[in-house]
Amino acid sequence: YTFSYTQFPFGFAVARADTGRVLFNSTQVIGLTNGLTFEQQYWELSTVLESDPLIYGLGQQKAPFRLPYGADGGADTYTLWAMDGGGTPDHRAAGGTPLYGSHPFYLQALRADGKAHGVFVRTSNALDVALTPSTLTFRCTGGVVDMSFFLGDSPSDVVRQYTATVGRPSLPPLWAFGFHMCRWGYGSAAATRAVVERMRAEGVPQDAQWNDIDHMSAFRDFTLDEEDGFPRKQVKAMVDDLHDHGQRYVMIVDCAVSSREWPGGYPPRDKGLEGGVFVRSAAGGGPAAGRVWPGPAWFVDFFHPNASGYWEEQLAVWREKVEYDGVWLDMNEPSNFCDGECPAGCVA
């Protein structure tokens, strides 16, 4: 590839070295694009596309595989902002319909030669991508402009380069691809086991059984509601029965750790404080106050050097009590019922 830029007006271009075909050009085109805007909490840049472009990516959205672009001179806007908005809203041209994941990457396939290229914007900031029949514009709420370009002979070649950059998932165990059963509200270990036994009686294949947060005491991670439906002996008997039949058991874990307990009353809280792994309040003075299913909660800072060790310890201790086979990681955007930090004195 070749990279070129102009100082005034500032713009840069990426082109294929062998053909000279320009793949991305942020230089302003009067009447079509605005060039680069860079402010303390906002940046914007655009590129011109071939007419009727074949664009894919910009997940997560509930949108067609090939992304639609604006009609009648307008734009289709794709909002990227990892959030737990509930449900799976259909993509709207006006934007504002992001789902759980944020993947600021698009792939463009070219009709002329069948080759493809991809553009990745490395940011966790809220981002809108506006797509028209002839342009694509990034509008981001701050951060550095950190972009990667992938040139390939085919779309699959581009995807291989992209996943080599951001990381590829570990290969799941074979049973993870099987038939799984789960819902909220089984209410007890006995009722959960009864569902499994009915599946067997009816000859319905089942590789794994899951439980939602109703198995927990007060919706706290690494606990059982032993007084209301999930006594440890019954849970152990259910799990042993699953394993005796070659089946697996998956339990839910939320990334928010309950903070309402007194010191010494809830080990996951105490160990997190001891290791200093919780996200700190912007105001200082301790962990940032959130609110999730257990009520007041703190979030583990995944950038903290002790974070992985904290989760490994909690999961290992928990597996000594319940021999689970997999973990359902939930609410891990992370989801927070407050808008930002919860106000002082806020109670669930």
Rank of each mutant, 00 (worst) to 15 (best):
F3A: 09
F3G: 07
T6L: 12
Q7F: 13
Q7G: 09
Q7K: 15
F10T: 02
R16T: 03
D18P: 06
D18W: 10
T19W: 06
N25F: 05
N25D: 13
S26G: 00
T27H: 09
Q28C: 00
V29C: 01
L32R: 00
T33P: 00
N34M: 13
L36W: 07
T37L: 15
E39N: 09
E39D: 12
Y42T: 08
S46T: 08
S46F: 01
V48H: 01
V48M: 00
D52T: 09
P53F: 01
Y56E: 10
Y56M: 13
Q61V: 02
Q61L: 03
K62E: 10
R66A: 09
L67C: 00
Y69N: 01
G70C: 02
G70D: 01
G70N: 02
G74P: 08
Y78R: 05
L80D: 00
M83K: 14
M83F: 11
G87M: 08
H91N: 03
R92K: 11
A93Q: 07
A94K: 03
G95E: 05
H103W: 15
P104Y: 04
A116S: 09
A116G: 05
H117E: 13
G118L: 01
V119Y: 03
N125S: 15
D128C: 07
L131I: 04
T132W: 04
P133K: 13
T135E: 01
L136Y: 01
T137V: 07
F138P: 00
T141F: 08
T141L: 12
V145F: 05
D146V: 01
S148A: 12
D153I: 12
S154N: 04
P155I: 03
P155S: 02
V158S: 02
Y162C: 02
A164Q: 13
R168P: 03
R168F: 07
L171T: 13
P173H: 06
A176Q: 10
C182Y: 13
R183T: 13
R183P: 06
Y186N: 10
Y186Q: 12
S188L: 02
R193F: 05
R193M: 10
R193K: 12
R193Q: 08
A194N: 14
A194F: 11
R198S: 04
M199Q: 08
A201V: 07
Q206P: 07
D207E: 05
D207H: 09
Q209W: 14
Q209K: 11
N211Y: 11
D212S: 05
S217R: 09
A218G: 08
A218M: 11
F219T: 04
E226Y: 05
E226N: 07
R232H: 06
R232M: 02
K236D: 02
K236H: 14
A237K: 03
D241Y: 08
D244T: 14
H245F: 04
G246L: 05
V257D: 04
E261P: 02
P267W: 12
P268D: 07
P268V: 03
D270K: 08
D270S: 07
K271L: 14
V277K: 00
F278W: 09
V279H: 11
A282Y: 12
G285I: 10
G286F: 06
A289K: 14
A289S: 12
R291S: 15
V292I: 10
V292P: 01
G295N: 04
H304N: 13
E313P: 11
A316M: 12
V317C: 12
W318Y: 15
W318M: 07
R319W: 06
E320S: 13
L329H: 07
N332Q: 14
P334S: 11
P334F: 14
D339Q: 15
A344I: 03
A344E: 10
G345L: 09
A348E: 13
